[in-house]
Design a protein around this nucleic acid. Structure first.
Lengths: 253, 253
DNA sequence: TAGTGGTCTAGACCACAGC
DNA sequence: CTGTGGTCTAGACCACTAG
């Protein structure tokens, strides 16, 4: 019997290796959806390990949604789900840098208010005094996105004494104020007169609107609405069960 | 010592209970980001269980991104990530039903082609003969979305003999053809002349475009591009680390 | 260098779904 | 009713790192 921390153990743990082997079978199509993968006791025989180790390997597959288990029947390769994907929400500055453009930030207005003014901000829940910020993000000196934001001063008191002409509110909040829940809504909009002017586009031009609400322990932290110039921006979402990812698949278009 | 399968055990497993208890501390804010949660051996003492059980509980928190672990230092409540969220990709029919509208489907055109015609479909990779389908989805007899789709007949041979005037391709594919990887891209667009006519909107009206590529074991399965009437549609994405979800938090606006 | 997390074992009991 | 997954134990060794 081999001890787990054994020196002869390869780079990754045994349970990991079992998981990987099974994932490879599924990826390759050798084990199609519905296929019954080996029982735990079979795996433990194959790999010469305890059943608990095989169990851990298969549980990881279950957590990733790759496998479904039924008592007495066994474990089966699952059909992929449909309704969800992992969306990459961009940080505007890094998105612009990624496109090899120069980022710039510009404060439009910033003032303290007693209550929630922006319409959708109400979803944050009851707030006391808030900061209401409007700003622009520019790529190579051309407008890229317009942003309006509410910061709940009860959740982020430091914001009151911060100069948002220097630092963008999103970047400032990031890391400084923790949150436990977030919600995003994505839609297409025609900009109103003011926004069209700030983005230097006609009102007929389609824009992507990204709204974001953030809470911490039930208390609203911030609400932001970002309007992106339509032609320059695309959100990307993938669904690849975590375990299915492999470096070799990453392509950079 | 208590056996795990013991009858005195409450509904959920002990490791689950430990996980839940810790999640509750984090949710409530009692254990803020950076807080060092109890060591495994402390938890095993508190709950009167083996360290392996405490380990399993904390590992679940790690997998959910709620906790970060460092050898010798301990386990710490993590700062929430920023860059990702779980997007709910709608099935158009159920989305329309959800809005208490009547769903209808209408085939615009369907033909077999030798190669990939639609521009973005090329990302699917090399394909042989494909089906090229255009259709409309209607809500209460009014256009809701326009869809154009490629189905790789090598991946779904049955599609060749299916009557897509009767069944919508998305619904037909769902469940019938398995996939292992998917990619989505979301953008705002102004419809071209043909699409504007089919959606019965002016070309100046902003629309949400949702593109979707699907693969199975490296082989392209289908590509779809759906154009939604802008005003009627919004995509929603949430980030709530899986473990943080609770029924009581679900609100229905 | 001491103590934490990471891993594994050999065995056990239980619940439950198929047969 | 059999056999599968689900869970847990008591102990062990190891790797890594923080102090």
């Amino acid at each position: 019997m081999r001890a787990p921390g054994n020196a002869d153990r390869p780079i990754r743990a045994l349970h990991q290796r079992i998981t990987d082997d099974i994932v490879a079978k599924i990826r390759s199509g050798a084990w199609p959806p519905g296929f019954r993968i080996p029982f735990e006791h079979e795996l433990s025989m194959q790999y010469g390990c305890a059943r608990a180790t095989a169990n851990k390997a298969v549980l990881a597959l279950t957590a990733a949604g790759l496998v479904e288990r039924r008592r007495r029947a066994g474990s089966f390769v699952a059909l992929p789900p449909i309704q969800s994907a992992v969306l990459e929400i961009p940080d505007i500055e890094s998105e612009i840098n990624r496109q090899h453009l120069t980022y710039a930030y510009e404060l439009v207005s910033c003032r303290k208010r007693r209550g929630l003014s922006l319409p959708d901000a109400a979803d944050l829940g009851p707030c006391g005094p808030v900061l209401e910020i409007r700003c622009r993000h520019l790529a190579d000196a051309r407008p890229f996105a317009f942003e309006e934001r509410i910061i709940n001063l009860a959740a982020a008191p430091e914001a009151a004494t911060t100069d948002f002409a220097r630092s963008a509110p999103g970047a400032w909040l990031s890391g400084r104020v923790a949150w436990t829940q977030a919600r995003h809504a994505i839609s297409a909009v025609n900009p109103d007169v003011a926004v069209a002017e700030l983005l230097e586009i006609p009102q007929t031009s389609a824009c992507l609107a990204l709204k974001r609400w953030t809470w911490r322990a039930g208390l609203g932290v911030t609400y932001a609405r970002q309007i992106f110039r339509g032609e320059a921006f695309e959100l990307v979402a993938r669904f690849t069960p975590a375990l299915m990812e492999r470096a070799s698949d990453h392509h950079y278009p």
